[in-house]
């Protein structure tokens, strides 16, 4: 049934996964290059961003075609809407990997500074979040979405603390201003990568059960017993899953 349409959807899913893998690799390499001061790897990341951009355009175009030709509804509609959003988020993550790569040269002259500021820890946490998001993109298992949100919050707090420390250093030592500025840019990119990762996790939840978590992550994080199923958003989308046995009033949406 609807074989052609199914093929198009499969193509879209594959392209999103490919984009996810490509961006995860770019982000991972940018972190690796940052920690090792590897300018050659940084150059390769900048070079490879073209691939990300090209795939970004291909996914956008495919979504446009599916919308125009098939008028998708329900789960198909959610998949395509979310694919557009995730594609955008992934592309932005790729851009931040490039920003990190561009700043490596200026930072690699000060090999000890990353260790002093425990930036390796932040980088590892962010690498973890990107991997987790890639996993749920693949599996559609939303069980640990809550952990992703918690991890992103932890990253945000750590980045803020390190930034405060950097600014204090800048106030006292003029000679660190350039490297400190580069570091602030890098940390901002790391934080944004974590932020985009949570957006993607939200999109996966939306695909799976139609729940809109956008701007509601805080509620979700504090919700007890939400390990397996994210809570309904403001407008509950799941109300009565059974066949109507008594008088059916239309379920509100």
């Amino acid at each position: 049934m609807e074989r052609h349409f199914e093929l198009e959807l499969e193509k879209l899913k594959k392209r999103i996964l490919k984009m996810g893998n490509l961006v995860a690799e770019q982000v991972h390499n940018s972190f690796d290059a940052l920690l090792r001061g590897d300018n050659e790897l940084a150059r390769q990341i900048i070079e490879k961003d073209r691939k990300v951009d090209k795939l970004d355009n291909k996914i956008d175009k495919l979504c446009q075609t599916i919308f125009a030709l098939t008028q998708p509804v329900a789960t198909d509609l959610r998949l395509i809407m979310s694919s557009l959003r995730m594609n955008n988020d992934l592309e932005r993550m790729g851009d931040h990997a490039v920003i990190i790569a561009q700043k490596i040269e200026g930072i690699s002259e000060y090999p000890d500074i990353l260790q002093e500021l425990h930036i390796g820890e932040i980088v590892n946490m962010t690498d973890m979040i990107v991997n987790d998001v890639n996993t749920i993109l693949n599996s559609r298992n939303t069980t640990f979405v809550k952990d992703i949100f918690a991890l992103a919050t932890a990253i945000e707090e750590k980045v803020e603390a390190v930034n405060t420390r950097i600014i204090e250093e800048m106030m006292h030592k003029n000679e660190v201003i350039v490297v400190a500025t580069n570091l602030i840019v890098v940390l901002t990119s790391i934080e944004r990568i974590a932020g985009y990762s949570t957006n993607i996790a939200e999109s996966v939840v939306f695909i799976v059960n139609g729940t809109i978590l956008k701007h509601k992550k805080k509620n979700f994080e504090t919700q007890a017993g939400a390990e397996s199923t994210p809570p309904s958003a403001e407008e509950p989308l799941k109300e009565s899953a059974d066949l109507p046995t008594s008088e059916a009033t239309p379920s509100e949406g």
């Binding site: 609807e2 789960t75 899953a241 239309p250 379920s251 949406g253």
Partner: peptide, 27 residues
């Protein structure tokens, strides 16, 4: 049988019943 009855915007975005979803998505 009446399988599902609800607001159109919900039926066509996130229906409650799998059967409805399969029908409206042409499966």
């Amino acid at each position: 049988e009446l399988i599902e009855f609800g607001k159109t915007r919900k039926i066509f975005t996130a229906p409650d019943v799998k059967h409805t979803e399969e029908y409206i998505t042409g499966r």
